[in-house]
Simulated scan of single mutants.
Amino acid sequence: MDEKLLEVKNLTFSFHTYGGVVKAVRDVSFDLKQGEVLGIVGESGCGKSVTSQCILKLNPEPPGFFEGGEILYKGQDIVKMSEKEMRAIRGKEIGFIFQDPMTSLNPTMKVGKQIEEIFVGRKDMTAAQKKEKALEILKLVGISDGEKRYNQYPHELSGGMKQRVMIAIALVGKPSIVIADEPTTSLDVTIEAQILDVLKNLQKEMNTSVIMITHDLGVIAKMCDRVVVMYGGKIVERGTVDEIFYHTKHPYTKGLLHSIARLDTDKNQRLEPIEGTPPDLFAPPKGCPFAARCEYAMEICSKLPPEIYHISEQHETECWLHHEFAPETDLNRKEA
């Protein structure tokens, strides 16, 4: 699991709008290793979906544009690739599960034909072989009576069934990486658990690397090996799941964890919301993006962007609290 399949380096992506330029993703760097599940977590508008779509150049250009950075897949820079080169990567090398199957599936095409689209242009495959692959992946994602489903239209399937079809489309080409952008957002909790189990089992079976985009920390705990926490278009903390959940080092991550109910939460105990509003990405703050909402904020936080502090080999955070001259708090206290 040491081989780096994907390296995102200093990625900066913005959008031209009538109101000005929106700095959606700002200097984001992370990597993905062979066979691991990486979670990207954060509230709506933090830049996680834009980041994931940059990897396959799915954001429309214009109005979107790359301001800087590299996205290296097996050593090749995706940012510099042409549309023709990207077509060879989308689906075949990197699959994508979109967050809303209701709108992502083509309502005018039968399910089977949508799964087979990945094989368009493959002259080495007959129509019968393409159908065989489609039926095989439908079985793998837990859809019974594959022949019947193959010939149905999306409106004839339930929400959970549609999401399984989305997973089938993403995995049928046996890609090295699958990006799952909030794959369970529109589903109820019982179906969500089934879909996550399907995804986890297939990931292990195929040794596929997965990037899981979500705002749900329960999904992160169940699925991921490492976690990247985003806020205001930037990465504020990264580490293994245990480090992020049990040794939190950034005030925003702490706020996220305290804003959800736990099994041992008393029924009379109020959840703690994160006060304030996200930063304006038309004019991003000079310092830490979370400074205006942070209970620990110091004068330097709003003036200068924090340095990267290495807590352990895999655990990093961007927070001034870890500077040697910062006052002691529960987040920077040395662990025994």
Results as ranks from 00 to 15, higher is better:
S14G: 05
S14L: 09
G19R: 13
G20S: 12
L32T: 09
E36C: 10
V41R: 04
V41S: 05
E43F: 05
E43Q: 10
S44R: 07
C46E: 00
I55V: 07
L56S: 04
P60G: 06
P62S: 10
F66R: 02
F66A: 07
G69F: 07
K74V: 04
G75M: 13
V79W: 06
E83L: 13
R87A: 15
D100W: 07
T103I: 13
P107Q: 08
I115T: 02
G121S: 10
K130P: 03
A134Q: 05
G146M: 14
K148P: 00
Y153S: 01
G160C: 07
I169E: 00
G173K: 04
G173D: 04
I179H: 09
I179S: 05
E182G: 01
T190A: 12
E192I: 07
E192M: 10
Q194N: 12
D197P: 06
Q203P: 11
T208I: 14
L217G: 06
V227I: 15
V228M: 13
G232M: 06
I235T: 10
G239L: 12
V241M: 13
I244Y: 09
I244T: 10
Y246K: 15
K249I: 04
P251Q: 07
K254A: 12
L256R: 02
H258I: 00
D266P: 09
Q269T: 14
P273I: 02
I274Q: 00
I274G: 01
G276T: 02
T277D: 12
T277R: 15
F282E: 02
P285M: 01
P285W: 00
P289S: 02
A291R: 01
E299V: 06
E299L: 08
K303E: 14
K303N: 14
P306E: 03
I308E: 13
H310I: 08
E318C: 11
C319V: 03
H322D: 01
H323K: 12
D330R: 06
L331V: 08
